[in-house]
Amino acid sequence: MDRWLWAVRLTKTRADAAAACRGGHVRVNDRPAKPATSVVAGDEVRLRNGQQTRIVEVARVIQKRVGAPDAATCLIDRTPAPPPEASVPVARRERGAGRPTKRERRELDEFRAQQGRLG
């Protein structure tokens, strides 16, 4: 498992892949995976990397690290797209207008406080 994760470039190093497996951040077909777990084509691999969870399907098993274009053919990415973030209007100043005055800063703070109460 750790060798495949490293070979298809889901982790930067093989040690990182092994640590993720030991830490419970890798699941194969909804079962916790150890670094020595073997994978076959068709397996679903879930890798939690920080706040992001990658869901990939094994298309081809490789043992050695290959170039990025070749590595991309070894997996099918099934990670759902992140939800769109709500856009909040941001106050913009004219270019070259300088820093806001104390009065403008107070108005901005009041505006932001009202937006916080509404949302």
Rank of each mutant, 00 (worst) to 15 (best):
L5R: 03
A7G: 02
L10S: 07
T11A: 01
K12R: 14
K12E: 03
T13Y: 06
R14M: 12
A18M: 03
C21R: 00
G23K: 04
H25N: 14
V26D: 02
D30V: 02
D30E: 15
R31Y: 04
A33V: 14
P35C: 00
P35D: 03
P35Y: 02
V39R: 08
V40S: 09
A41W: 06
G42C: 05
E44K: 03
R46V: 12
L47P: 02
T53L: 10
R54A: 05
I55P: 02
V56Y: 00
V56L: 02
V56N: 03
V58K: 06
A59T: 11
V61P: 03
Q63L: 13
G67R: 14
A68Q: 11
A68M: 09
P69R: 15
A71M: 06
A72N: 08
T73W: 03
C74P: 08
L75V: 13
L75F: 11
L75H: 01
I76W: 01
D77E: 06
D77H: 15
T79C: 00
P82C: 08
P84V: 11
E85C: 11
A86Q: 13
V88P: 06
P89A: 05
V90M: 10
A91K: 05
R92I: 05
R92F: 10
R92A: 12
E94S: 05
A97L: 08
K102V: 07
R103D: 07
E104G: 09
R105H: 05
E107V: 09
E107M: 07
L108K: 15
L108E: 05
D109H: 13
F111Y: 14
F111S: 10
R112H: 11
Q114T: 14
Q115V: 12
G116H: 15
L118I: 08
